[in-house]
Design a binder for these strands. Structure first.
Lengths: 225, 225
DNA sequence: TTCCGCAATCTTGTATGGTAGTTTTATGAT
DNA sequence: ATCATAAAACTACCATACAAGATTGCGGAA
């Protein structure tokens, strides 16, 4: 019974509920296949059904909920094929981004990237996996910004929620050391203004997730279609 | 005052309104900058505000409407930078698709593609621009299917609405003859299983739109940010 | 004329009641 | 005990009423 009150008039209750539910879903507090209802969530957050309903619509459009009219609303199970294609989309865009950045790094690019990698090493050394995850995201988003297509990253971000659910299931499994090493390879390619090498490094960096996916499906079969 | 009734229980009123409004926006019946209100649209379609409100939310999430809380809801003006980045996204994905198809065409690929091009030539010859547009879309979607990432096309489709509004403004300007010629180049590259050539052809095919965009901005400055 | 302030009237946001359809449960017949 | 049937208890959908902020326009004062 966590009552959520809007701080500013700019943020509506519906938006609050969206954020709260999305966090619950991505962190697996709400598990794939769980059945929820407007009244249920409304009572839980101390609001009426209306804002909850609108939150459901938003989350359904983002692929996290499945609204079955007149039947029920369920947390969508993770579609392995959907995850694969989300990754395909991300890879397609990020490869294009890394090409642009490597072809035309700009003055601030190298130092910015080096700084981010240093932060990641610090986070990894202190075992702060949450901060590491944040920095990892920032690493990729920064590349998008350097390529002048920050909006494109927002698109990736939307579809990344699907991948994040898988990632959450594999917490601790993925080696942050390895991710840092791969980031360094990418940074080196950018420093040498070598688009081809940067592209190859980015592909390798993203491809590693495929192994984790099949492994995770075996570990949590109920969460997948 | 067109009253819309749901035929099946699977399709809600809100979904109907979404479709009707999206068509109106893409075809410029509702122009960028137009102010609409829930009550207004509700009265126009003979439903209550509730389903209209939900339609607004969906369309806002697709980038066609801008909901200004407590103020109004307006048809989003076309963002030139947004169009450019939507094209960037589309190009990134389609290049990756065309690479895959060209690298591994599969048995049915060549004849399917050839058939589509023949249909397009027929449509162009008979001056049926609407059918030509439909076939053009089918051409690209078919490539996505052949690459095994039809879901990725759906993503492109969502963001393509922004591009479609521009395309609608340039009806008659764009030469279907030229598009067909470019499609033939792509088909030839696939037939020769030459990914590099296919990629170059696809990039050229998509790049041509840049000229049209700047031209269109000059012709309809009020519709752009 | 210009500017300030208030009120009428817009807008979207939220709450609630009722409706139609689905699922579950209970009940009775076989 | 098993199965068919009906009733009860859910669900999301829609309509309506009200609330709260934003805009507009009017009127009066400087």
């Amino acid at each position: 019974m966590a009552v959520i009150a809007p701080e500013t008039s700019e943020e509506t209750m519906a938006m609050r509920v969206v954020g709260a539910l999305r966090d619950d879903i991505v962190t697996m507090a709400l598990k794939p296949g769980d059945v929820i209802s407007e009244s249920d969530i409304a009572g839980r957050y101390g609001v009426s059904r209306q804002p909850v309903r609108e939150a459901f619509i938003r989350l359904a459009q983002q692929g996290l909920l499945l609204i079955r009219p007149k039947r029920a609303t369920v947390v969508k199970k993770i579609s392995p094929d959907g995850v694969r294609q989300s990754r395909f989309i991300r890879e397609s865009i990020e490869v294009e981004i890394i090409r642009r950045v490597a072809a035309n790094p700009g003055p601030e690019a190298n130092e910015t990237i080096a700084g981010l990698i240093a932060d990641q090493e610090a986070a990894s050394a202190s075992g702060d996996s949450r901060r590491f995850h944040t920095l990892d995201e920032l690493f990729h988003r920064t590349l998008a910004r350097l390529a002048g297509v920050e909006y494109a990253w927002q698109l990736i971000d939307d579809h990344k929620m699907q991948l994040d659910r898988v990632r959450y299931l594999t917490l601790g499994v993925s080696s942050s050391q390895r991710a840092i090493a791969e980031h360094k390879v990418i940074a080196a390619a950018i420093a040498k203004a070598d688009p081809a090498a940067a592209e190859a490094a980015m592909r390798a960096h993203l491809a590693r997730a495929e192994l984790l996916l099949t492994q995770t499906i075996n570990d949590f079969p109920d969460y997948f279609e």
